[in-house]
Design a protein around this nucleic acid. Structure first.
Lengths: 162, 162
DNA sequence: ATAGATGCAAATATTTTGCCGCCAG
DNA sequence: CTGGCGGCAAAATATTTGCATCTAT
């Protein structure tokens, strides 16, 4: 897949190369948010995630580190991180049921492009997207705090199969 | 934490001026999809909706027309319409909980801009958005069938209040 | 010391499914 | 006539809450 220098395209697995390890934990500390054992674990899972995880997958990974942690705590921690805009919540067009997926919030927004056939998800950045958001902010007089774009369609491979 | 009565009021006025009445019903007929009494009712509700409705609101409005209709049928009909790309499913950034909202699919995609303060939702079209989708389609080799953009932030009125 | 977090269990909320009788085409 | 559809009840999924206890700061 050719990505032009203009807009970088990453495929399938999510490579978290935009954020230094420990970023979330540092952010929490900076905001004087209580850093419990459980929160450290969830945050660690989020930071090392190679793909988008749902609440249950986060629980399972967290329990491999600390079996004591519960689903309720995972939900409450996700809620906390979301409220502080440290993670984003996606649903990837409900292609895989109605659960939500989470990813740590990088410095730049990206678009999620999902194949409705095979479910593969790509993350795309584009200056055009930044421009669009600015235009909307101006036109609607809104101070944007969250932006989510999810695009679905058939990828080349799946079109070939059909 | 749940929606206050005031919030309920302002789920965003939606003026449905893009589609002729009866559009959905005609589409179903054209596709040789069985037009049952219940489907006619749901479709009628969707077409006359002045704002984004969730599955339960659709049921309630449908029952005012035909008290026999059940929630299960509403879900199955929404699923059908969604599968045929006649309606879009939104969640409006989960500003109002984790339910889904539905709107009949107009000729052009639009962006949903929601105020995280008052919950008002505005629909915006932009040539820039069309351009962005084309760029993504090209770069990712994807044939786009769904595009959903939801943007959140504080509107002017809510910033003034704060 | 104490505000705030966690665990447990139960409550909510939302959507889906199996089965059978019924109706649109 | 008949295959798909709707109703009912129950299941499956997903998320939230009350309350007692514990812990990070």
């Amino acid at each position: 897949m050719s990505a032009t220098p203009e807009h970088r395209v990453s495929t399938g697995e999510r490579i978290n190369d935009q954020e230094p390890a420990g970023h979330l934990q540092r952010e929490l500390r900076a905001r004087h948010i209580r850093l419990t054992r459980q929160r450290r674990v969830v945050v660690q899972v989020m930071e090392s995630a190679a793909r988008h995880l749902d609440a249950n997958e986060i629980l399972e990974l967290a329990q491999q580190i600390d079996p004591e942690i519960t689903q309720v705590t995972v939900y409450r921690t996700l809620e906390l991180l979301k409220r502080h805009a440290l993670i984003d919540e996606l649903d990837l067009l409900h292609l895989r049921g109605h659960r939500h997926f989470y990813e740590s919030h990088g410095p730049r927004d990206h678009i999620h492009v999902a194949c409705v056939g095979c479910g593969k998800v790509r993350e795309v950045e584009s200056p055009l997207y930044e421009e669009l958001k600015q235009q909307i902010s101006r036109d609607c007089g809104i101070e944007i705090s969250v932006a989510r774009t999810e695009i679905g369609g058939l990828c080349e491979a799946c079109r070939a199969k059909a």
